[in-house]
Structures are given as structure tokens and as C-alpha cells.
Amino acid sequence: MLNTPVTIIQPSDGWRSLDLRELWDRRELLYFFAWRDLKVRYKQTLFGVLWAVAGPLASMVVFTFVFDKMAGLPSDGLPGPIFYLSGLVIWRYFANALSAASNSLVGNQAILTKVYFPRLIIPLSSCITGLADFLIALGVLLLLMAYYHVFPGIAMLLLPGLLLLAMAAALGSGLFFASLNVKYRDVGYILPFLLQLWMFCTIIVPYSEVAQRGGAWRFVYGLNPMGGVVEAFRWCLLRGAMTGPGNADALWMLLGTGVPVALFLLAAGLLYFKRLEKMFADIV
């Protein structure tokens, strides 16, 4: 009985510590939650997983028609469909993960008030579930690229890094909104609207256009962590076909602000979550 686990229960003042070891011990639960959400997602739908493709494709058609054909906005010399679809694929991962994480605590209320496990697992699993839809949409994007004879180069190897960055940003803001949502369900109304605006700021205008307008613009644009992710995502996949400035230096600068901002969001989200965690079961 030497290795009997001892549980100490006492009031925590302020922040609960981020118990990574406990999180690691319960990693299987993380997997089971993600698996559950995936299994349940397209149950009792006629078209099932096609819905993961339909959303981005429909947006792509509308954006191409409105912004490319009618408004004639620049798209780094890329064909409208792949310019917009590439942005949508990575953006939608971020947006879906963020909103799923934000609703995750409230959605798992029954479990939250009955069983203990590291609460972080719930929003974290939401961010992982979104990867499935992302991979399917990415496949569609690759097909569309092949149709336009655009082929990704070796830079594609950077994709996992970009995905991690998008995940950090989504998890960070998701943790914040999820905690807030426990007490104020207003979050559920604000979020779709906020994400809509955020999307237009992120995937419509190519960074090359912003960069031409000088330092202040660059800096402000860089504060949006997804700005760098979307730009770099396009650069990785579509570099061969990009014309105009498509310039790597500007990209590194953009990521140079985007990465710290994403990490800041993650840290702030974690702190806020940890601060409120002990009250979740009482007020959800």
C-alpha cells in the first residue's frame, strides 16, 4: 500500500494550479470526449459528413462571386475559389473550435455537477474534435487546387505548426468564453456575431494589400492572431501560384506578432479558466 494515492481537498485561494500531470493521467478521457462528439455529430443526418464540406464550399461560392467577380478585390493573383477556400478551411477550424469550446462547459453541465475530472479536458476535447472537419475540408481544398493546377511545395510541412497556432488561439479564447458562459449565457448570443466580424477582418483582404499601407496598419493587423495563420496557410499551400508581393519577410513579421498574441491569448484564457474553475459546478 505504499503507493496509495492521497487526495487532499481544501479551499484553493485564487488560482488552482494547472495540474499537467493529472491532465496527462486522464488523457484517455480527452480522447473519449472527442470521440463521443465525433460519433454524435452527424448521427441521424441524411448527408452526414458531407456537411463538413458543404459549409466552406457554399461560403467560397458566395465570396468568389461577391468579392472577386463583383467587387474585384485583389487575391494575390490566385484564382478566387482557391484564395477564399484556403482562408475558409483554416478559419473555420478556428471558429468551430472556438465556439465548441465556449459552449462545452454548459453543454456538459450534467457531468460537471456530478463527477470530478480536470475540467480543462472538456474545452480541450472540443478543439480536437474540430480537426476532423478540418482534414476533410483540407482534402477538398487540395482537390480544388489540383483542378487549378496549383500544387503545394515542401513548405506544406509547416502546416502542423500553423494548426497548433490556430488551436492555441482557439483554445485560449475558448477557455475565456467557456468560463464566462458558465455564468452569463449572453456569450451564446455574442459569439456568432463576433466570429462573423472577425472572419471578414481575417480572410477577405490579402496581407500584401495591408502591408503596402505601412507600419501602423501592419501592426494592427498583426494583433489578430488568425491573420498570420491564414496568410501563412495560404503561403504554404499556394506559394507557387501567388503573384505580387507574396513576400516571405512580411509573412515572418506577421507571424512575429501573431505568435506572441496567440500565446498570450492561451495564457490569459488558462488563467481566467483556472480562476473560475472551482465555481463551475456551483453556478453552471
Binding site: 481537498i9 481544501q10 479551499p11 470530478y116
Partner: peptide, 27 residues
């Protein structure tokens, strides 16, 4: 004792793996 909620005061120590049946069918 199951750590679902935190106490406001005091302290508890549990030696051994803790399982709970607060409601069957949770989750």
C-alpha cells in the same frame, strides 16, 4: 469529497482511489 465542488473552509484527506456514485448514468 468527490471534488465536484470545493469546500469554503477546512480540509479533507482521502487515502486510496476514490469512486463515486452520485447519480447513475452520468455522461
Amino acid at each position: 469529497l468527490t471534488r465536484v465542488t470545493e469546500p469554503t473552509t477546512g480540509r479533507a484527506e482521502l487515502r486510496g482511489r476514490v469512486g463515486s456514485l452520485l447519480e447513475v448514468g452520468t455522461g
